[in-house]
């Protein structure tokens, strides 16, 4: 289980999170929605210790992230896969090496690495791209390699940072299908940060809206669809006012 407990985070004079609290249950996919720049990505970066809260705490399986040293953090990160907004593939490595890198860190034998990379690429429909460089891939393919890199580690949690941003509707739908498939195949707990409501409805078990630094509302997809909170309604309907 992942739990944000009254997290505050600011950068200079700008306060991004102001009392952010949220609980993500094992096995579910939680979608965090919110306006651009509202702090969604900042929030999930706390889960893997890329950012530390100014106040409050983030717990992963009851381990307080900000209290961990680097060794402890490394231990937690072994259970978490992170899919970055722009994939963050290593541009000097082939697709195979990108997916294999995390496995090498875990001292997985070479033959098993080959099998797991192959399996992960098959799961994201990218079989046969092993030798290609990231620069040779489209945006959607790069994001799928990012997912393959995360799932090859067989993590317990996968965090997706804006997985469909910048993609055309069809490729976005493919990404959504991949996220659903990943959960069904691997049974992982997912956290998806997005402002794409179609994606949120497709992949989420529950949806939480981040607004002005804190959770405005959290509920099942049906509850969010039926909400009468004016701020949430405006966002999910995409109304300018």
């Amino acid at each position: 289980m992942i739990r944000f407990a009254d997290v505050y985070k600011g950068f200079g004079d700008k306060q991004v999170l102001t009392g952010f609290s949220l609980e993500i249950r094992d096995g579910e996919t939680m979608v965090i929605i919110g306006y651009s720049g509202s702090g969604k990505s900042v929030a999930i970066k706390h889960i893997v210790g890329l950012l530390r809260p100014d106040e409050g705490e983030v717990y992963v399986d009851d381990r307080a992230i900000s209290e961990l040293d680097r060794a402890g953090l490394t231990e937690v990160r072994r259970d978490i896969g992170f899919v970055f907004q722009f994939a963050a593939l290593f541009d000097s490595m082939t697709v195979f090496d990108n997916v294999a890198l995390g496995l090498r860190r875990r001292d997985v034998p070479d033959d098993e690495i080959a099998a797991r990379v192959s399996e992960a690429l098959a799961l994201v429909d990218l079989t046969g791209t092993d030798d290609r460089m990231p620069a040779e891939l489209s945006g959607g393919m790069r994001k799928r390699v990012g997912i393959a890199r995360a799932i090859a580690l067989r993590p317990r949690y996968i965090l997706y940072d804006e997985p469909t941003t910048g993609l055309d509707p069809v490729t976005s739908a493919i990404m959504d299908r991949l996220m659903v498939r990943t959960r069904e195949h691997l049974g992982v707990t997912g956290v998806v940060v997005t402002h794409d409501m179609r994606s949120a409805y497709t992949v989420g078990d529950r949806i939480a809206m981040l607004y002005e630094g804190a959770i405005r509302q959290v509920g099942t997809v049906d509850e969010i669809r039926a909400t009468d909170d004016p701020v949430v309604r405006q966002f999910i309907e995409g109304r300018p006012e």
Partner: peptide, 11 residues
């Protein structure tokens, strides 16, 4: 391009 962050998340 967040490759350094990606390294960290890969432990």
């Amino acid at each position: 391009t967040e490759q350094v962050d990606a390294l960290e998340t890969l432990a």
